[in-house]
């Protein structure tokens, strides 16, 4: 039953939330308290967060800025950005030595003409795979062939594919078929009835809720998921359980 006002009926752990300002786009909230207020307004308990500057300018600086957004209340979890350079990997390895790395997010090096290929990413992906650290991979400008052939070279590496859009409609099924350890984050995936269809074909355990706030409004995809024919158990998995499993190093 739809109402003019919406709150989720299952616990929610957002798998894709950006904090801080992009260089050309201020965030709609200025500090952690304001972010938590927006989480509360939408009934979201926890969020995996990365810093906008890590996506926009420098993974290393962005990761440093992220520290200010991490409280000790268990509501925000760090997602460190990484790129295939010695400096970036060294930063992540230091954090890992402190027991602070549950996942990483790949900086899109394609925007600087370094493709997502094993010859460019082997050192990084080998270490992530050996360390059982799951990796989030934005799809905005990704190359499908690079994505599949590279990830197939690291079959134990767990991945979350972020931001699939209707322009990726031809990709999604063959990519999920070719990569059994890949999950699909849902913030932009709007082809009609496709979330239910992907649940039928691949199982709810392959789907992960993310809002991609503040790129997108926080509520719409959460509302959508609550108005599908996913069972409550499936909904709970998509909204939180699958992410918890991934962060604990789980594979399919």
């Amino acid at each position: 039953m739809t109402s003019l006002n919406f709150k989720p009926r299952v616990p929610v752990f957002d798998a894709n939330l950006r904090v801080g300002d992009l260089r050309d786009e201020p965030a709609p909230y200025r500090n952690r308290d304001e972010l938590l207020a927006e989480l509360d307004r939408h009934g979201v308990e926890r969020a995996l967060i990365y810093h906008a500057q890590a996506e926009n300018i420098s993974p290393i600086d962005g990761n440093n800025y992220l520290e200010a957004w991490l409280g000790d209340d268990g509501r925000t979890y760090p997602q460190w950005m990484v790129m295939p350079t010695a400096d970036s990997l060294s930063q992540i390895q230091s954090l890992h030595a402190e027991g602070r790395v549950d996942c990483v997010r790949l900086f899109d090096t394609g925007q600087r003409d370094l493709p997502f290929r094993p010859w460019a990413y082997n050192t990084l992906l080998s270490w992530l795979s050996e360390s059982r650290i799951p990796v989030w991979i934005p799809l905005l400008d990704a190359d499908a062939d690079d994505l599949v052939t590279t990830l197939q070279a690291y079959p134990d590496l767990v991945s979350v594919l972020v931001g699939a859009h209707y322009v990726h409609a031809l990709w999604v099924r063959p990519v999920l078929t070719a990569l059994p350890n890949a999950h699909l984050e849902l913030s932009r995936y709007e082809p009609i009835c496709e979330i239910e269809a992907l649940r039928d074909e691949f199982g709810a355990e392959r789907l992960v809720y993310g809002s991609w706030y503040s790129r997108y409004a926080m509520g719409p995809m959460l509302f959508y998921l609550h108005h599908t024919n996913l069972s409550d158990a499936e909904l709970a998995s998509v909204c939180a359980g699958n992410l918890e499993h991934i962060l604990q190093g789980g594979t399919q």
Partner: peptide, 19 residues
């Protein structure tokens, strides 16, 4: 049918506006 209507409806329902 380019986009599922539910997330677009969710934009209205979850907006900070009056009933």
């Amino acid at each position: 049918t380019l986009m599922d209507p539910r997330p677009q409806l969710g934009k209205i329902i979850t907006a900070r506006i009056s009933d």
